[in-house]
């Protein structure tokens, strides 16, 4: 593997993810969204993510501030570009793609 690509991949692996997951209480859908997002973070972004779960029932003002319409909504503010995903993320592969995480796992094995 050429040095440049190696460096690039290494950099990609060091990128910090800032994620906010807005849910509405402890519904099944909320729970599923939380579980799925956590799973992705733990498996792909271990040690380099900042995920906070916000219950907009508790903090409705945040829903306004961050322009939340649907629930659950996952907002990625870093790395750029910012992205909004809505749903329960049952398809974890799609969530990985949606968040723009390189399709390599921490152990270097290709994700299948």
């Amino acid at each position: 593997m050429p040095e440049f690509e190696e460096l690039l991949q290494e950099a990609a692996h060091r990128v910090q993810y800032v994620l906010r997951l807005y849910v509405t209480g402890a519904t099944d859908r909320s729970t599923r969204a939380i579980t799925n997002t956590r799973w992705i973070c733990e498996h792909y972004l271990k040690g380099r993510y900042d995920l906070r779960v916000v219950d907009i029932y508790q903090q409705p003002l945040l829903a306004k501030t961050y322009q939340i319409i649907a629930a659950p909504t996952l907002v990625k503010s870093e790395p750029l570009p910012p992205k909004r995903l809505v749903g329960d993320f049952s398809d974890r592969e799609r969530l990985v793609a949606g968040l723009g995480i390189p399709r390599e796992r921490e152990d270097g094995r290709r994700n299948t």
């Binding site: 509405t24 409705p60 829903a63 995903l85």
Partner: peptide, 20 residues
């Protein structure tokens, strides 16, 4: 096109904002 839909969701965000 800013929002990507992945699975089930609802518009509870709107409801909460309105209620607030």
């Amino acid at each position: 096109g800013e929002i990507e839909e992945q699975g089930e969701y609802d518009l509870e965000g709107l409801f909460i904002r309105l209620a607030h």
